[in-house]
Design a binder for these strands. Sequence first.
DNA 1: TTAAACTTTCAATATTTTTTGAAAGTTTAA
DNA 2: TTAAACTTTCAAAAAATATTGAAAGTTTAA
Lengths: 167, 167
Amino acid sequence: MQYQEAKEKFISTWGSLGSLWGINKAMAQIQALLFVSTKPLATEEIMEALKISRGNTSMNVRQLIDWGIVTKELVPGERREYFSTEKDVQELARIIAKERSRREIKPVIKTLEEISSIEDDGSEKTQELIKQTKALHDLAETADSMLEKIVHQKQNWLTKSLLKMFT
Amino acid sequence: MQYQEAKEKFISTWGSLGSLWGINKAMAQIQALLFVSTKPLATEEIMEALKISRGNTSMNVRQLIDWGIVTKELVPGERREYFSTEKDVQELARIIAKERSRREIKPVIKTLEEISSIEDDGSEKTQELIKQTKALHDLAETADSMLEKIVHQKQNWLTKSLLKMFT
DNA sequence: TTAAACTTTCAATATTTTTTGAAAGTTTAA
DNA sequence: TTAAACTTTCAAAAAATATTGAAAGTTTAA
């Protein structure tokens, strides 16, 4: 496998993986492209490399910036914007974990809380609903607080956590 | 909020959450319905409750069985099949973690391994590709082995792991 | 100012994913 | 056997999601 092939394979693998971490294909591919690029890229270069439209590039780059994964690089004397992504995988993982918690897990916890606190009319089905939503609520809270604590450790959190956990 | 409303809210919340753990809406809704049901349900009852077609019900129940989340219950003297889901949330989480690792993380690790082991021609861009895919590969491996170890702990793994990790 | 060089927006279009429903398949009891 | 009671399959349709591209907007330099 040569460079070009390997690079394309990486971008497409990472792209189709987008759904796993909750972003769309183009967004994931742009991030992948920047991730292995040796220098910041401009809109035009991204369009060219991924064969996607200007509009698509613009919107998805904006979203990546929203997520805090991509930053604008201003090159002195140049008008156009260049983009680069966080290159440290652990930092990347921290950002993603934090955003997913905020965007998805937290709202679910809130909803489960609401549901599990409906009035208990004593019927078996109501009690089952309360019991099961409470159990899920507790699981979600535990998982989220785990995520949160992980996210607050900066350096080498994953490795450190692993060591603590299994020694 | 009354029982029926609460139940519907639970099913729809859980359903739209499906994407978070990698399954489609109908599948997640069926699981949610069974999760708060006080007894196993037949195809007809699921169709009725979720207003989905027979074909859709059949295929998604089958997938849930594939995942190991739902089991057939044979009621003596009845021909039709009844279905129920794992009711213990921790066991549920274990099954999901295990399946996602098998279906998604493991194949990605393999691909990253392939890409990061291309021949180093000495050029800057090749070295960057190798370096970055290696970093992702290592992160994915660490995360997956963490998941794997968690998954092997049976009782109260989440709580136990948390305690170990943050004390 | 003006206009060139860029970025953003969004309605229309294309693509992907999910769902339907009717036909085919299977199982069981008589 | 047969036929009733069920389940599965899958091509077509619908729904959801992503993408395009041209027009509108913005910024900068002269």
